[in-house]
Design a protein around this nucleic acid. Sequence first.
DNA 1: ATGAAAGCGCTAACAC
DNA 2: GTGTTAGCGCTTTCAT
Lengths: 340, 340
Amino acid sequence: MIESNLKLSDIAARAKVSRTTISRVLFGTGGENVRVSESTRERILQIASKLDYRPNVAARMLTGKGSGIIGVLIDSHAPAIYFDCLRHLEHSAFTLGYRIMIAQQHENIDSLFTQALDFRSYGVEGIINFAHNYPQHEREIHEFMRIIPRVVYIRRPALADATAVQVDLETGVMHLVEHLLSRGRQRLGIFLADLEHATLQQRYAGYQKGLANAGLKLNKDYILFDHDFIFPTAENAKKIFQELYLDRGVDAIICQNDLFAAFVIKEALQHSCRIPEDLAITGFDDLDFAAAFTPGITTIRQPTRRMAEEAVRLLHEMIQGESKAQVINLQPELIIRSST
Amino acid sequence: MIESNLKLSDIAARAKVSRTTISRVLFGTGGENVRVSESTRERILQIASKLDYRPNVAARMLTGKGSGIIGVLIDSHAPAIYFDCLRHLEHSAFTLGYRIMIAQQHENIDSLFTQALDFRSYGVEGIINFAHNYPQHEREIHEFMRIIPRVVYIRRPALADATAVQVDLETGVMHLVEHLLSRGRQRLGIFLADLEHATLQQRYAGYQKGLANAGLKLNKDYILFDHDFIFPTAENAKKIFQELYLDRGVDAIICQNDLFAAFVIKEALQHSCRIPEDLAITGFDDLDFAAAFTPGITTIRQPTRRMAEEAVRLLHEMIQGESKAQVINLQPELIIRSST
DNA sequence: ATGAAAGCGCTAACAC
DNA sequence: GTGTTAGCGCTTTCAT
């Protein structure tokens, strides 16, 4: 039977000691050098556990204690992989005694402040920012960090002193390129929404390096730019297939994520284009359906679990005040299936 | 330039009025019949907005104000569809001025209390419970609701007076059955982990009704039970295909969700079984990859957005104290693609 | 139309 | 070892 909303003074009354002592026993307040007799301690713990006492977080916060809340900022158009990561995040945070409060960020940069101010209202101790990067808004992001000084970015922003966890997408795409070349592919197509997003820049860099390493030169015909290419839809896949394969004759297409790859594969099959004989296709993320597809989608697995663990760890260190800006770089993993 | 952590008294000092008046203007405290002169009001609003003042939620909570936090409980094994719903949930909640705090629940029922107590510690005003149902734990769930009296369940628990949003899975499966019969299918297979979970009971009921409506009788051979069937994996798909199609000769398989359908389709294709000519396959949820598959997966679309909206609306009403227990029943939508 | 004082549940600083 | 007091930022009640 769980009592409702006890407070320290209720325990104090039953234990016949002051609230201070209860606080000392239950939360270890007062520092290392407080002495409480074993018997009182016992008695208090007994009563508290029997009554299932839980502290009022708001009251503790008011005295300057941390809230134990971590704010997580997610882009409203975030691909599924981020939610996978969110799940691990909650777990890691919980393990360290934190709760997660989420907020979605919309395209516009201003919402970054609003959300930050709002999080501060709630006393969040730090933020994990999953939102997209805005390399063109470096200054505003600095301002954001001034509001909440403890931020871990997933994907490093264009910011010198930011703490971030990032996946080495560049190397990921390089591996993809190497793999495709080793399969005898010569004309590797890729499409990108633009080069403003850091993650797209990284992909592009990996693509370039991969080709350069093999002594091949870049053919601009195989690279397609279109602002719509952030959204994996059937229409976009049609456009991509038409331009890169039918018009320009690539023999491989590196897709931005698994869903894009799935739609491009579907489009290709409708044209009786054989995968991978006529056209090799790669995805990105290794979402769970990538393995269930026919053909299985060759892809780059993002270490979502480690991303979450590292992000929480870094933030925890910042909260403890033990850390300065650092960047953790995680390696993704090439998963070869039959689409290549 | 955003000032850091202003408090009411800071505004009060600048506006040369008392904190009380600031509170009245900024938060409308004091009720309907408070009068503040237009000029003071103006002045206060000006200053507050210029300084970008934000209230300290913890302090307001301590005086009895609501936290504006909604707790969301998600099962740690929740399928992707729930995260889709979570995104809409955050949006709807935000619109009504709430923040979302998430917690994951693990299989065991005890964590339900722990999470509830924990949420109460944080002053959450209500909970949206996405977690799986435990029809065998009706009493414990009652206890849970005593701790946090405002709970909206996604999927109705076996509880008379619970407020819930549910999708009529039974009708969904009935539609699936009708559709398959209309395509000339005669031997409809289905697999279920067990009949303990409410959602599986509903599917089974829909299956039975669909057949009964068509004047067909149930063939137990076409129903497969196995506790592993909550997890969509390649191995499970293999088992399902072997037993239902190869051994028992069904000509259609109703899968629990899209990912299961995807794996079963893959298995079938590997056996040169033609979809849908030899075997029709249906999914559930209409995740975004269902359309990208070849063949496109016929499925039942869950109205995740409306689910979220309704859940938040119901909870909001409960928080406002305007509502008694009710159940909202949403209809899913049959999406016909080429897997049937 | 506005302010002063008390108090929400807890902790810190200082007493004893 | 344990208790007392003051105060965190805000709202409420009661004055004025």
